[in-house]
């Protein structure tokens, strides 16, 4: 594989085509966005169009009955509609959106995108709806608080970086007659791991390098717990403080797991296509992690030393997810 193509997916439904490119220029991607007139669009909503019909009806009543007060109501409501443009706009203006984080996910799962919404000069913002096309949507009001953190879920596609596309933020507060909205690109992306795929071949085991089968107990630094003193335990490890408090004689027990560590090796799957290999490796990484064993990863150009725990799993899966994926926009 020569030039690594950027493998990203955009969720269907977000603006594309010419409008998308125009949006790209007008509202460029950024980790945090403060909404101003360049970014906010406004148009009568469906109830707003019905409201205009109602105005027409009242106006016709006024004309046919030659009724000046009916005229007055028609004009008052028409002006209210115009004033509502400003109020609806003000409900969105000044808000700022910040990208906080995105969780990694396996294909077909949903990634959790965390955003923070901060209020502007106005004391309160009501009825803000946030949605990623194709993902979940949520409604939030900022009243008596400066900011709110929200989680939105977006289904992810295949391995690599997943860009959820533009986020829709809309509101029709206060009257619901106008819809005010914006599309923001928060420059958030979620890592999509390879799809785990079981394989009969066990990659590596404790192959090649004899990875220390036994680790000297004293050499370990990992404090594990106490256990009752047994004859032969080093006096240096006796928990003297406990003894002083009147507890039974105990020794500090250090972690000294001398279990074997496995290598997940790219070369263990000869003749299998790239994606499938990664899927197998991913499967085994999960298996080892579940089994509580140390495991390392060897990919062309990458090597991760054996360990276990969440951090190790994340390291390994990230390496697998980003294998031969262009590191654009990082």
């Amino acid at each position: 594989m020569g030039a690594a193509a950027e493998v990203t997916q955009r969720t269907p439904g977000s603006p594309g085509g010419r409008f998308g490119r125009w949006l790209e220029r007008r509202i460029p991607a950024a980790r945090s966005v403060t909404l101003d007139q360049r970014r906010i669009f406004i148009f009568p909503s469906l109830p707003g169009l019905f409201f205009l019909l109602l105005l027409l009806l009242i106006l016709l009543t006024a004309i046919n009955y030659q009724n000046n007060m009916a005229y007055a109501v028609a004009f008052l409501l028409a002006t209210l509609f115009i004033i509502a443009i400003l109020h609806t706009y003000a409900n969105l203006a000044g808000l700022s959106l910040h990208a906080v984080s995105a969780t990694s996910a396996f294909p077909g799962q949903q990634s959790e995108f965390t955003l923070r919404l901060e209020r502007g000069r106005r004391a309160s913002h009501f009825g803000l709806r946030l949605a990623w096309p194709g993902g979940s949507d949520t409604q939030v009001s900022l009243v008596d608080r400066d900011s709110a953190e929200l989680a939105l879920f977006v289904p992810v596609g295949t391995r690599g970086w997943h860009h959820p596309g533009r986020l829709l933020l809309e509101s029709s507060y206060p009257l619901g007659l106008l819809r005010c909205w914006t599309w923001v690109d928060l420059d958030l992306r979620a890592l999509v791991y390879p799809q785990p795929l079981a394989s009969s071949v066990l990659p590596g085991g404790s192959s090649e390098r004899p990875e220390g089968a036994t680790v000297p107990v004293s050499g370990s630094d990992d404090f594990h717990g106490f256990r009752e003193y047994r004859r032969g335990d080093s006096l240096r490890q006796v928990y003297w403080k406990g003894l002083a408090r009147g507890l039974a004689l105990q020794t500090k027990h250090y972690a000294a797991f001398a279990d074997h560590s496995a290598w997940l090796d790219w070369e263990a799957f000869p003749g299998i296509p790239v994606e499938q290999r990664l899927s197998h490796l991913c499967y085994w990484a999960l298996q080892y992690e579940r089994g509580g064993e140390d495991y390392g990863l060897r990919l062309p150009g990458t090597e991760i030393a054996p360990a276990r725990g969440e951090a190790q799993l994340a390291r390994v899966l990230t390496a697998l997810a980003l294998f031969r994926i262009g590191e654009q926009r990082q």
Partner: peptide, 10 residues
């Protein structure tokens, strides 16, 4: 407030 703001234009 909104009705008060709408009043002059009315």
């Amino acid at each position: 407030l909104m009705l008060a703001q709408a009043f002059p234009l009315m």
